[in-house]
Simulated assay, not measured.
Amino acid sequence: MWLSFVRACCGAALLFTLPGFAEPVKSVYLIRHAEKGITEGHSRDPQLTECGQQRAQALAGFFKSVPLQAIYSTDYQRTLHTAAPIASAQQLEVRQYDPNQLEQFAQTLQQQPEQNILVVGHSNTTPTLAKHLTGRPVAALTEADFDRLYQVLLTPAQPQLNVFRQTFRCAG
């Protein structure tokens, strides 16, 4: 399901051992929350749908092979519930960040000592955060895009961005 992503991550892990890197390479993984429910009143804080819950579980299964040191989420049910299975599997607490302070948050991430960090955000914040981390424009997400996974490699030379698509299919 995530074969191309796993191969890329394994390749990125090799960067940790290559000569010429004075400090470890950091990977920041960025995902948008899973599918959210649409309510009549268009709640500002909807829950995940059944499909969204399945996607969150699938993400937890994927990240089992990626040792994370930190997980960040906004303070919304859909992001927290997307992060929860991953955090549980990794035995980590979910830290919260302010989606209105993305430039400052990008600086915080760059200064963190952790080498593998996951950030769960939104369609309008995830590409923007990737842009702040890499210094390059990143294509916007639509309301229907739930399958993107961004890996930002913070190398001493130049940040690199890898974008992957999850081949998840909802069972139901």
Rank of each mutant, 00 (worst) to 15 (best):
G52C: 00
L14E: 08
L102C: 03
E93R: 11
F63N: 05
Q160I: 13
S73Y: 12
K26V: 03
Q112R: 09
V6Y: 00
E103A: 13
V119E: 04
G41N: 10
Q57S: 10
Q69N: 11
A60M: 06
C170S: 13
F105C: 12
R169D: 02
Q111L: 11
H132T: 07
G37Y: 04
A139H: 04
A84N: 09
Q47W: 07
Q96W: 01
G135N: 03
P85N: 04
H132V: 09
T128K: 15
A56E: 02
F16V: 00
F63D: 05
Y97W: 00
L48M: 08
D75F: 06
Q90G: 00
E50W: 05
P127Q: 05
Q101N: 13
L14W: 12
T128D: 14
L118W: 09
L118S: 02
S123M: 13
H132R: 07
P67N: 07
Q90P: 02
E114W: 08
P85K: 05
A157K: 08
D145F: 07
G121F: 10
S65C: 05
V119R: 02
A60F: 01
T74G: 11
N116A: 08
E35I: 02
I31D: 06
G41K: 14
Q111D: 15
L154P: 10
A171K: 10
K26H: 06
L18A: 00
D45I: 11
L133R: 03
L109I: 13
Q158S: 02
P67F: 04
N124A: 06
Q91H: 14
V163N: 06
P127W: 07
T167F: 11
Q111T: 14
T128N: 13
K36E: 06
F168D: 05
P19S: 04
G61L: 03
R78W: 08
E114T: 12
E114G: 07
W2L: 08
P156F: 05
G61N: 03
P46H: 13
E35P: 13
T74N: 09
R95I: 00
Y150H: 14
A84Q: 11
P85H: 05
N162D: 05
A12D: 00
V119W: 07
P85C: 03
Q96M: 11
S88I: 01
Q107W: 10
F16A: 11
K36I: 10
Q112C: 01
A70L: 13
G135F: 09
K26S: 07
T134Q: 00
C51G: 08
R44M: 01
K36P: 08
C9P: 01
A130Q: 14
R136M: 13
F105V: 12
Q160V: 14
D145A: 15
A84P: 06
A144M: 08
A58G: 00
V94D: 09
A56C: 09
E23Q: 13
Y76T: 06
V152W: 05
R44A: 14
Q57F: 00
Q107R: 14
I38Y: 09
A8M: 04
Q96R: 14
T126A: 15
T155M: 10
